[in-house]
Design a protein around this nucleic acid. Structure first.
Lengths: 215, 215
DNA sequence: TGTACATCAGTGAACGCGCGTTCACTGATGTAC
DNA sequence: TGTACATCAGTGAACGCGCGTTCACTGATGTAC
């Protein structure tokens, strides 16, 4: 049972990475309850199964941990977009499919979306700045995606910005709402998702009838 | 100079109200920097010019203070709507006027909007619940306003909810962005307001072309 | 108007607690030979 | 394969600090007569 062959030969590096992961997960867990500013290093490390001082072997400061979580969360968000892009590009089904993918990803990466929703306006200046920067990048990517659509070929940069920012604002607002603890019940969550779908459809109707801005 | 006639005859009640106000203002001030969860009673009372323990003469807990701020902030928000309603009701100018009024009110009641934007998703469960409740009420009021418009007479409750929630989500998102410390520069703020105006216009176009939901 | 008493906003000392961070350490893993 | 040394993730004691809350108090304002 415990002979040499069954013992996992975990290297020092692997063990360190595992601890780092445990810290990040404990943080995401604790951030469901409180804002990042109220995060306790001692509670955090206790949940991660290490002594408080061991935290500094992995992060120089709590802020560095926060920035790591921002990075991680946006990797998740980009995964969402990649999944939407990789499917059927027909405009008629794009909205429905995007909302469906979002709903699934929200469930799987609840903590990441909750973190972004919470700290977007709630966190420290550094955290807010990082999130705002990532959201700007994200919106710019969406603009280039939209610019490729034949229906929008007459649109200028300003028009694309209006539409893209609408989608991003809406998605972030809905995501924050859907992953919030008060939307635990499946029925509530479904209602929120349905509403998001309808909101997106109404915006698409608006885009279809939109007269591009002058200048 | 200091004879009886010039001395303000401040009653005990008036003085108490003034201190209470000082606490609330100090809280709003401190909340520009951190989330409500990271609020310090000691720093708060110091800024208000009283000793820490005097806080309890005015509020039983910090949470009670938070709920008072929620109430206050929504009084501000309702004032905004009242001002929009009291003006020209012509649909063509409604959006522009609403955005203009919002921009002015954001400037005048920056702290209130910042508080709502921050704690909407960032605060304690009690605070989030209170804000969410008030926003629900607010949206319902907007629905009854919209229902009175001749252009929307064929719309059902579900359609009205989609449109109203779009406006509310958008307004809260934009407000939080506009009052954030990173939008201190007038040019940045103007750009955000312009974008909000265009977003609202695109939604109005969407509403104009919207085919009411069945059921 | 004057006096005696009640009210109560604000005081200040004291408490125990959890916090982030320092430091010298331990002992298992990794490396050089 | 065996030995001697280096690395470094995690330990545990200790620190000083600001925290929320308790309590008995003070003294100006308000009230009853």
């Amino acid at each position: 049972m415990t002979d040499k062959a069954t013992v996992a030969p975990e290297s020092r590096q692997e063990r360190k990475e595992r601890t780092r992961r445990a810290i990040l997960d404990a943080a995401l867990d604790q951030l469901a309850e409180t804002g990042f500013g109220a995060l306790s290093l001692r509670q955090l490390t206790k949940a991660a199964g290490i002594v408080p001082t061991a935290f500094y072997r992995h992060f120089a400061t709590l802020d560095e941990l926060g920035l790591t979580l921002v990075d991680e969360s946006f990797v998740t968000l980009r995964g969402l977009i990649r999944e939407v892009r990789s499917g059927d590009p027909a405009p008629e089904t794009l909205i429905d499919r995007s909302v469906d993918v979002l709903a699934v990803q929200l469930e799987e990466h609840k903590a990441h979306f909750r973190f972004i929703g919470r700290e977007r306006h709630g966190g420290s200046a550094a955290l807010r700045g990082a999130i705002r920067h990532e959201l700007d990048l994200f919106e710019r990517e969406l603009v280039t995606d939209l610019a490729r659509m034949p229906e929008l070929e007459r649109w200028g940069a300003a028009d694309l910005h209006v539409l893209a920012s609408l989608f991003v604002d809406l998605m972030v607002a809905a995501a924050a709402e859907i992953v919030s603890p008060s939307a635990e019940q499946a029925a509530v969550r479904r209602e929120l998702v349905d509403n998001l779908r309808n909101q997106a459809r109404m915006i698409v109707v608006g885009a279809a009838g939109w007269e591009p801005l002058g200048g």
